[in-house]
Simulated assay, not measured.
Amino acid sequence: MPRITTVPPHPRPGLMHRRGVLLFAFAFAVMADPVSSVAYAIEAALRALHGDLALLLPTMALVVGIVVLVIVNYHQLVARYPQGGGAAAATGEAFGEGAAFIPIGALIVDFVLTIAISSAAGASAVIAFVPALAPWRVLIAVLLVAVVAGGTWFGHLGRTVFAVMTVAFIALAVAVLVSGLFVDPRPAGTTSADPGHSPLVAVALAFPVAMALATGIEAPSSAIAQLGQLDDPGRRRFGRVTLWLTLGVVGTITLALTAQAVRLGIGVPHEDTTQVAELARAATSTPVFAAFQLTTALLLLSAASSSFQAGPGLFKALARHRHADGT
């Protein structure tokens, strides 16, 4: 009688490795950088406009329009390079390996500055709620960098934690927006009706500063190299979903917060606070404001983590890139 053997069923993936959880962790952790830019890009634009709130919404609308074009570009790059590399891989293939160092250098600077700016902004968010901590600003920022660097050692679990931080900020931002619809204007900070130039020139000069909102848009095209458990179609799908989800979240929150800041009259804040903090203070109760500041600080940590993920992902993708002759 022939011997019958049975093949044990393939073990079901654990919760942390199921496709939906993996997509949640990847998408919301990687999008943290552009989402966090909302916390300072609107204020940066207003400062460049010399506090002219009337020009703030057109400026941010122009920035969101450019972000749409960037997303469309990276949508194509993710399709062409599902193993990662993004703009650097495309440049190298089109113009030679030497030319690839231009986007590589730009991205390295972007990753380093994102970590530094996010940590500094996170420290400012903490100080905005507890002003007595102002003398410890630098120490707080350095400690935040150390915390983020440590969190990235936990791989997918770390990404999940940072993704939860991002979702928490989005939820509190929605709460601030909804609450702000039912309060009367509460002017705060410094405003002006004179941007220093004609409206068109003022918007053009503020635009480069406001483009801080676009930092991290390229991250999915590099970070997908870290998804070794997926095949090329899976990485392509994850990258594209993340790009368009990022646009929906960032575009909506940016324009909504900008419109609310204009309606409530929230101008350029003093040095120990931020515009988004003053907006939340004017629009919500103290407990919600406290929660919003906490989630803002956590979001900025998550943004720094996205650079810790995208940087190695970029180098990993480029290191395994092969020429047409197989070398």
Rank of each mutant, 00 (worst) to 15 (best):
I224A: 03
L53Y: 07
A79N: 12
P135K: 13
T273G: 05
G92N: 12
P8Q: 12
G228F: 13
L172R: 03
N73C: 07
V35I: 12
M165Q: 06
L22T: 12
L230T: 04
A210T: 10
I104T: 05
P312I: 06
V276T: 09
A261C: 08
L53A: 11
I253W: 06
L205H: 02
A188Y: 10
P103R: 11
T190E: 06
L205Y: 04
I217W: 11
A202Y: 02
S306K: 10
L77A: 01
G151I: 05
T190I: 15
V145L: 12
S179Q: 08
V209N: 13
V161Y: 02
V183R: 02
S119C: 09
Q309M: 15
I42R: 09
Y81N: 07
A282R: 02
P9D: 03
G84Q: 14
F24T: 00
P135G: 13
G84H: 14
A163W: 15
A146G: 08
V147D: 14
S285A: 11
V178R: 09
M16T: 00
Y81S: 05
H156P: 00
P195Q: 11
L200Y: 07
P187R: 01
G20V: 00
V7T: 11
A277N: 06
V209Y: 11
V145K: 09
A141P: 04
S285F: 01
I104V: 15
